[in-house]
Design a protein around this nucleic acid. Structure first.
Length: 277
DNA sequence: AAGGTCTCCTGAGGGC
DNA sequence: TGCCCTCAGGAGACCT
C-alpha cells in the first residue's frame, strides 16, 4: 500500500525519466483511471499531448507532474497504482494509461484495483487546488509538529483515526500509523483530547522517523502490488514491528501482537508496550 | 461542523 | 478441483 515513503520512491524515479521531456502521445486504456478528470479521457489526452514536464512534485501520498503550461497532472496511486518506466509494462494487463515521450520512452500507469488515477489540474503546477485542503506532510520544509499536535488535541477522536486523516498531517497510511504508535508506545484507541501536546508531538515525530527509515530502505512491500518505477520492491517490510505481525511476539517485550479494528481499519499493536491510560 | 460510515474495485485465500 | 464468500484498504461522498 503506497504511503508517503513509497510515493516518494516513485516520485524520484519519475523525476529521473520525465523531467525535461515532452509527452508526444497519451493512450488512456481504461476510462476509470482518469475519472477524476471531469472533462473526460479525450480531453485528458488533448491537454497533455505536446506538453513538457518541468518537475515532479509530491505532498503526502499525492504526486503531480508540473507542466510547461503551468497545469499539472495530478496522480494518486490509491491501493495498487504503479508508474513504470520499463517498456514491457505497457503490455501489462493492468496498464491503464500509457504516456509516450519525445525520446521514445513509455511511462505506464498500472493499477489493478483502480482506486487511484490521474487528472489534469489547471494551473496546478505549484500546488494543485484539488489537494490544497490536505495538511503538510512530515518531510516538507517548515512542517510544524508542535502546531499539528495542538490541533490534534482539540479533536474528538482516537489517535489512530487522527493519524489517518490527511487534512491534519498527510502521507501517513495504515502501516506507518501502526508503526508510529508502537514506537511512541501509545495505544491506538487513545482519545486525542486526553493526550498532552508533548505526547502527541512524540507520536508525530515517530511517524516522521519511521517513514524516513522506510524511505531509506526503498519503501515497504508485501507483494508485487507496490513497486518502484522499475518494478522492484523495497525492503522495509522486514523492519515492521507490528503491522502484519498478528500473533507474533513484540520485539521489545515478547507479548503477542494483537489486531483490532479502529475505524474499519486493521490495527496492530502490543497490548503491553501500548497500554491505555 | 466535524466525525463516522459507506462505497468504489479486484484478486487472494479460506472453507467446503 | 472449483466455486463462493470474505477481506484488504485510500479517500471522497454522504449522513448525522
Amino acid at each position: 500500500m503506497p504511503e508517503l515513503p513509497e510515493v516518494e520512491v516513485v516520485r524520484r524515479g519519475l523525476a529521473d525519466h520525465l523531467t525535461g521531456h515532452t509527452i508526444t502521445a497519451v493512450d488512456v486504456r481504461h476510462p476509470r483511471a482518469v475519472r477524476r478528470h471531469l472533462l473526460g479521457p479525450a480531453d485528458f489526452s488533448d491537454v497533455l499531448t505536446g506538453r513538457t514536464v518541468t518537475d515532479i512534485r509530491r505532498r503526502g501520498k499525492y504526486l503531480w507532474f508540473a507542466l510547461d503550461s503551468d497545469d499539472a497532472v495530478l496522480a494518486h496511486l490509491g491501493m495498487s497504482g504503479q508508474f513504470r518506466v520499463d517498456a514491457g509494462a505497457a503490455d501489462h494487463r493492468h496498464a491503464r494509461v500509457v504516456l509516450t515521450l519525445d525520446n521514445g520512452d513509455r511511462i505506464t500507469f498500472c493499477d489493478q484495483r483502480m482506486f487511484g488515477g490521474l487528472s489534469i489540474s489547471q494551473r496546478g503546477a505549484a500546488l494543485p487546488a484539488e489537494i490544497a485542503h490536505i495538511g503538510a506532510d512530515p518531510f516538507e520544509e517548515g512542517w510544524d509538529p508542535r502546531g499539528v499536535a495542538r490541533r490534534l488535541r482539540g479533536r474528538r477522536t482516537t489517535i489512530k483515526r487522527a493519524l489517518l486523516d490527511q487534512n491534519v498531517v498527510s502521507g501517513i497510511g495504515n502501516i506507518y500509523a501502526d508503526e508510529a504508535l508502537w514506537r511512541a508506545r501509545v495505544h491506538p484507541e487513545t482519545p486525542t483530547g486526553r493526550m498532552s501536546v508533548d505526547r502527541l508531538e512524540r507520536v508525530l515525530m515517530a511517524a516522521h522517523d519511521v517513514m524516513r527509515d522506510a524511505l531509506e530502505a526503498g519503501g515497504t512491500s508485501f507483494d508485487a502490488l507496490y513497486v518502484n518505477v522499475h518494478g522492484s520492491s523495497g525492503y522495509f517490510d522486514r523492519s515492521l514491528n507490528v503491522y502484519g505481525r498478528t500473533g507474533e511476539p513484540c520485539r521489545v517485550c515478547g507479548t503477542a501482537i494483537r489486531r483490532i479494528g479502529v475505524g474499519g481499519r486493521g490495527t496492530h499493536f502490543c497490548s503491553t508496550c501500548q497500554r491505555k491510560r
